[in-house]
């Protein structure tokens, strides 16, 4: 019962509020009529004026429209286009930095990072912004993100076999572990990804599977680059068989072999 009474009281309150609002509306309408009403006898002049005004308003509308259109066009022309974040991932010593260097050298005439035979040469994520690549009349801006090689183990003794001192090898190993973590964290911030694999080695490694699985889970488009095709042992078919659902391009980033096809498949991917 108590509930019913509260409902009734609420409905009555609503009715009174509606009545008040309708009264207020009628009062506002009367006032507006009073304001718009003009003295009799001056109707012809007012008509002329109103015609002039309407013409002016039409003109001003057209001018405003044109002005806004031109402004928009100019702002679009000079506005900064959003560059595509192109991540370069893969295991150590696959040729990620060599590929990044080749792309940067081709389009901006600069290098991105140092390259060596010692694994984990790249131990920090390197970014090159605003690299515009042209292919077949199309032009696209990229932010190239070169990442350290992803590995599941890092042994400082391995570096010592490359004539490194104990201390140096240990510090390199420590930096490499941090680099791997940083590279994995960057997976979330990439728009398109190149997975660079060494075509002379077994593509069924868990690191490759993990990288590609993660990119697939994040819905990031992937292009697999089978690098080092200039070497005798290289086998692109093995890479293609390992990842049949992805586009695979065989290149030699070091020798600049088959780069045209690489750019073509990159543009196809985007």
């Amino acid at each position: 019962m108590a509930k019913k009474t509260t409902k009734r009281s609420k409905s009555s309150k609503a009715k009174t509020a509606r009545a008040k609002s309708s009264k207020a509306k009628t009062a506002r309408a009367k006032n507006s009529r009073k304001r718009t009403a003009k003295p009799k006898g001056k109707s012809s002049t007012t008509k002329k004026k109103s015609v002039k005004k309407s013409k002016k308003s039409e003109e001003s509308f057209v001018i405003r429209f044109v002005r806004n259109f031109v402004r928009r066009m100019i702002s679009n022309m000079f506005a900064k286009k959003k560059n595509i974040k192109l991540g370069i991932y893969g295991p150590p010593n696959a040729g990620k930095t060599t590929l990044a260097n080749k792309v940067c050298h081709d389009w901006i005439g600069e290098k991105m990072g140092s390259v060596s035979k010692v694994p984990h040469e790249t131990r920090n994520v390197n970014i090159k912004e605003e690299v515009t690549i042209k292919y077949d009349g199309k032009e696209m801006g990229f932010n190239i993100i070169d990442t350290p090689g992803i590995a599941t183990k890092i042994d400082y003794e391995e570096f010592m076999s490359f004539k490194m001192k104990n201390k140096q090898a240990k510090s390199r190993a420590k930096e490499a572990t941090k680099g791997v973590i940083e590279a994995i964290k960057w997976l979330d911030d990439v728009d398109v990804c190149l997975v660079v694999l060494d075509s002379t080695e077994n593509p069924y490694s868990q690191v490759n599977v993990t990288i590609i699985g993660n990119l697939a889970a994040r819905d990031i488009p992937v292009l697999i680059v089978a690098n080092k095709t200039d070497l005798k042992k290289s086998n692109i078919k093995r890479v293609e068989n390992a990842f049949p659902q992805y586009d695979v391009v065989g290149i030699s980033a070091d020798k600049g072999k088959n780069m045209e096809e690489f750019y073509e498949s990159l543009f196809r991917l985007i």
Binding site: I150, A151, T152, K153, I154, D155, A173, T177, K178, V180, I181, I184, L187, Q206, T210, G213, N214
Partner: peptide, 21 residues
């Protein structure tokens, strides 16, 4: 899997040099 790699990397020291998965 990536979390496992990150965790192993953060725990690497003289006697633990990583994993094979």
């Amino acid at each position: 899997e990536t979390l496992l790699i990150m965790e192993t990397m953060s725990q690497i020291h003289k006697s633990f040099k990583g994993v094979e998965i």
